[in-house]
Design a protein around this nucleic acid. Structure first.
Lengths: 134, 134
DNA sequence: TCATCTGTAATGATAATTGTTACAGTACAA
DNA sequence: TTGTACTGTAACAATTATCATTACAGATGA
């Protein structure tokens, strides 16, 4: 995770929550994040496919939250944008070495445990709580 | 953390732990990780400056653990290689927007909490435990 | 039919990461 | 005191990840 996808997704979701019923066009969202509209649409596209957002094309279009913000957990948003392992990539070590042969398996177990611990934290927080800070 | 530094550092530390007293040259370590010796030396250099490793130049040189593995916490190793925020970067949002103006502060709080939760997990694990799996 | 907006692709630009080579300096050992 | 085996570090190239820009077909409402 050396990108800004989580920050971007949460920003989008927060704006949508605060805008209530009103549809927000991607250009307006992009203006708030200070990001290119096409990138915003790409992230919206991702969040839409996962059921977080519903959007409408054409004149007067834009997007809104598809679920009540009180039910959206930050852990879900994290999962939606997660691409690389939390603690980073692994190497492709030498299978002729005792350690090299096994380490990736042990690392994976460790990563899974670590991520679960993070998720259990994020599960306790809702989008509503977060956007309530503004 | 979209790099392999944590995996690399833990691999190095594990090899050193298992090799006990014997010094390991960087070339041997690099062979196990399947990585360039210069990169390994760079990571060793980092771990040495932080007191995890002691190394010796010249013929018969190489490196060893500087602290007993039972006292080395995985959280320490994580901190040693940590470069970017756990949940990724932030944007540089529009200060003219209510959300844009505040979000980075709220994100930072969230990131800190999330990282503490991860660290508390990694604090419970020692290098000795990890290398004991091999 | 016009203006507005989405959805997506194609492409370029920048930054992060990894790989490679080179070499001065250190230490041991014969 | 010379050769050999290492470290430590820099400089640079190559690769990959990330972000930015532009373009445009298609949807929608006025």
């Amino acid at each position: 995770m050396n990108n800004a996808k989580f920050a971007t997704a949460l920003h989008i979701m927060t704006l949508l929550d605060l805008s209530k019923e009103e549809r927000l066009p991607s250009e307006m969202i992009a203006g708030s994040i200070n990001l290119n509209p096409a990138l915003v649409r790409k992230e919206i596209s991702n969040l839409r496919k996962l059921g977080f957002i519903s959007s409408k094309e054409g004149n007067g279009g834009g997007c809104t939250l598809a679920r009540p913000s009180a039910e959206v957990l930050l852990s879900e948003i994290y999962k939606a944008v997660r691409q690389t392992p939390l603690l980073g990539r692994s190497n492709t070590p030498n299978p002729a070495c005792l350690v090299g042969r096994q380490i990736n398996q042990h690392l994976e177990e460790l990563y899974t445990e670590a991520e679960l611990s993070l998720l259990s934290k994020l599960e306790k927080k809702t989008l509503e709580e977060f956007s309530g800070k503004f």
